[in-house]
Design a protein around this nucleic acid. Structure first.
Lengths: 353, 353
DNA sequence: CTGAAAGCGCTTACAG
DNA sequence: CTGAAAGCGCTTACAG
């Protein structure tokens, strides 16, 4: 702070302020000789651009967009809530944010939404992505316009975004497995798994991680093949009732996907002991189920932290500054005792801020 | 953003820019009549001060201090690392931070350090506190000078700080208990506990939370009275060897305090099965012990998140702005599968930035 | 290719 | 008690 200013640089380089500015900001139309002199002065003085002053003079507002899947998925509603809340607070820092709804799980819809972004003049976008080559073209287009792009929660094609913010789903699955193993305390058992669809990359990865750990470290346990539910609570309900039948040999249940309302409903109707139960994402109903002792564990990815980080990263990217420190995002384990009080599930107050 | 400016307000109020400024910033020497007119204009126009512009014109640098206990405590070294890392990044935002070393657990030392702060002209300080009335006077002094004060990790007397950033240690203990209970899968067991000192509030609280949950939900388990270790690895080592003896009825071990190096050493020398083992704070050695299967769980308070939040909070407090969103800080559970790759335990690169 | 000057929204002496 | 003016570190036309 209070280091050299651009006019110090200009003086040291023996050029005018305007010329120094031209090379600093790569505006072109500068003689190579001048460029060299300025570059030299910059490194000699250790000049660093004052972003705040620059923004003031330009009356700059950062325009950010978040592309989030629509639908009744409680997890993404939580993500939305966090975005809105942060946006409210960041409006004081000249940051405006818009949430763009995208039809869930549709490559085509996502492709179109990204395409539409190109004309909207955003400075940065965070996208809940999918792995599809179809996205590469619109992403390249966006990037060509100088828009900063990051993947959020679910990644985009790797070479077409600057960073990914989200957990490793294999790690999430491994974590679930470790806890399930521990809960058996060496006893024999069978774990019924559920998944939305094995085409969903995150579901497949979680299941894989889960299997890996059980196989390696808990040989007394068997992982039963997943029942596919399309994340539909009704389907999950029916399937879960089967697994929970009296006399079933199932000692644990693990759902890698959504639709837990159905699972919880099935459990709450069961009398007697129930299997050990692990699900993903802390939302209103999974939190309540933990409190009610209907399930044992929730593996969560902390969307609040992810959203926060998305904002910090986007700003750094846009200003072309050094990245803020960002330790790995690891899945968090919730039991009924370490639940945050404020899992918000409020109706969205404002779409845009 | 790009709302009304102070000169809009001045115009609307029919006073000069300077006068409007005087009432906005409470500089005094303004006629009540002018004050009213300006206040009125402010609310009518919805004026909000542009902090960035103000800071630019004052060449303002935020001066922050962190009071952190010294000693070889790995956890606080981790806290330091995070502070230094963030400070490095924040220097670009005109934030300077200083870490002040305070002799650990000494009310007197802390009292003196806080007293010394008064003349140093900081804008805000984060303090790893203690509960003692002796701190009230120096804190009041500091506050009188307009310094923003927050408690970090361990709270200060409640009425003498603006906020506390840290976990609830009862919750941490409850969480440890829940997992320990689960790991017994209904079997009978006895849990040997260890604590540094029952005078340490956080230790007492963790133990209490632990006991509460075991008593309420795991009647087959007995919580053995804590062995006091002063957080000394050597003491812990000796004590742990006893609990780990062949033929011991101890089925689990829980250390609410520090000094885990000793505990881990004792375990690593044990042959055959060992008890289920839970400790606090993820640092280099506890992480390694998790990987080596010497312990099962680490309950962690995420110092990186705490430090981050301390910076955000201090800034908001200093600028007298709305608080950023800050969900509850809950203890995190680590197993060997969800370990972050980058638990830094680097030597500090710089004390000050 | 280069430079002088006004302006961004504020604060800070300084003069009345 | 009040106001006019310079300056913070930059960007943006505008003139050469």
């Amino acid at each position: 702070m209070s280091g050299p200013t651009l006019s110090d640089v200009a003086d040291a380089a023996g050029v005018s302020y305007a010329t120094a500015d031209r090379v600093i900001n790569k505006r072109g139309n500068v003689a190579q000789k001048s460029i060299d002199k300025v570059r030299d002065a910059v490194t000699r003085l250790g000049y660093v651009r004052n972003v705040a002053a620059a923004n003031l003079s330009r009356r700059r507002v950062y325009r950010l967009a978040f592309l989030i899947p629509t639908g009744s998925n409680a997890f993404f509603n939580r993500v939305r809530d966090h975005i809105v809340q942060s946006a409210n607070h960041l409006s004081a820092d000249s940051i405006s944010v818009e949430i763009v709804d995208v039809s869930a799980f549709s490559v085509e819809a996502l492709q179109n939404s990204i395409g539409d972004l190109a004309d909207l003049d955003f400075d940065g976008v965070a996208i809940v992505g999918l792995q599809s080559r179809l996205l590469e073209h619109p992403l390249a287009e966006l990037r060509a316009r100088g828009v900063a792009i990051i993947g959020l929660v679910s990644d985009l094609p790797t070479n077409f975004r600057s960073a990914y913010i989200g957990i490793d789903n294999r790690v999430a699955g491994r974590t679930a497995a470790r806890m399930t193993g521990i809960a058996h305390a060496g006893r024999v058992g069978a774990i019924q798994t559920f998944a939305g669809s094995m085409d969903a990359r995150d579901h497949a990865e979680r299941l894989q991680g889960f299997r890996d750990v059980i196989t390696a470290d808990f040989p007394a346990l068997t992982v039963l093949d997943p029942i596919l539910t399309k994340d539909d609570p009704a389907v999950l309900y029916e399937a879960a009732c089967g697994a929970l039948q009296a006399g079933s040999s199932v000692t644990a249940v693990y759902n890698v996907g959504a639709g837990n309302v159905g699972l919880i409903k099935a459990i709450s109707k069961t009398s007697g002991t129930r299997p050990f139960c692990v699900v993903h994402e802390l939302v209103a109903h999974s939190k309540q189920a933990l409190i009610d002792n209907h399930i044992n564990l929730v593996i969560d990815q902390r969307p609040d932290v992810e959203v926060n980080r998305a904002f910090a990263l986007l700003r750094a990217l846009i200003d072309d500054r050094a990245m803020p420190p960002m330790p790995d995002l690891m899945p968090t384990i919730y039991v009924r005792d370490n639940l945050p009080a404020d899992t918000l599930n409020t109706v969205m107050k404002a779409q845009t801020t």
